[in-house]
Design a protein around this nucleic acid. Structure first.
Lengths: 158, 158
DNA sequence: ATTAAAGAGTACTAAAATAGTCCTGAATTT
DNA sequence: AAATTCAGGACTATTTTAGTACTCTTTAAT
């Protein structure tokens, strides 16, 4: 399955919670409580989001995290980038070094094309879109039909 | 990184080789030789592609594999599906069961939106596009800038 | 008929990536 | 000074993915 890690899923949960309460600074422990994700894991995610300039942090008592930008300006691509690094489906789309036969490779360019399209899709959706309640029939949500589930847990429920 | 497994990368290499020589039946050992992928791994991939109706196989001496459809009709989405299962970024996009709070989940619907876009992008590119030599400046191929490589090997070079 | 060549199916092992935890240090408020 | 909170890094455990091996079935050639 073309998939994102759990941490990215968690991150969207955390960020959409924060997007709904922009007025306050949120400490890691508070977010952990609200989301049900353990605090150590929440902290790990928050740190990554700060490093990627999605969040700002303040230390010390009364410290915590706030969004660095308006929800409309936080793209899904930037969230994925923060948690998982570059958005690219194949290695050779990232580094040309890895490919021993870069010049003769007819596939690399075409993977690049695909990556571009996907990147564009992920750039076009923001945290604001994620928090906005969408109410479409279920069929529209699920692009693939009958399905073998390969993992269990997720917390996209807040 | 939003990524595909190596096997999927291999699969595109194998399929584009086969797409260039539609006239002949290709045995696993032959494909292994040409691509440099070990035969056991090649076999594994070919079997998955048969199961997904991307390839047809014939057993016995002189047997082997051929494309089940014209290259224009083999979508990248179907290749990914064959190797990795459903194309969905988050678990909750696949099964509603997994999500304890399905009704109250504001995020699920929005992930579905993203999945749809990505699925559309992957449906829009076929094996024919992959084999077609694209010659654009390198910058166009690589959507993300400076980059930490997390894996090494790939064989997208044929 | 027998043999050799090929794929089908399944189970298993090894390697790599991901998730999750813990510890120590630095900044800030009271 | 003490308490709170984030920063950074190292480490462990878990899960996923990759790769291999083995047995069975099918087909062609002799």
């Amino acid at each position: 399955m073309l998939r994102l890690g759990k941490l990215t899923d968690y991150a969207t949960v955390i960020l959409s919670y924060m997007a709904k309460d922009l007025a306050n600074v949120h400490a890691a422990h508070e977010i952990a409580e609200v989301t049900g994700i353990t605090q150590t894991t929440v902290s790990k995610i928050l740190k990554l989001l700060v490093k990627a300039n999605v969040l700002n942090s303040t230390r010390g008592a009364k410290g915590g995290y706030v969004l660095a930008k308006a929800p409309q300006q936080v793209t899904v691509a930037s969230i994925i980038y923060a948690l998982e690094g570059p958005i690219a489906l194949t290695e050779c789309s990232i580094s040309q070094q890895g490919c021993e036969q870069a010049s003769g490779c007819g596939i690399r360019a075409n993977w690049g094309l695909i990556n571009q399209k996907i990147h564009a899709a992920l750039e076009s959706i923001t945290l604001a879109d994620m928090t906005m309640p969408v109410t479409l029939p279920d069929e529209t949500f699920i692009p693939v039909a009958t399905i073998s589930v390969r993992g269990e847990n997720n917390v996209s429920k807040y």
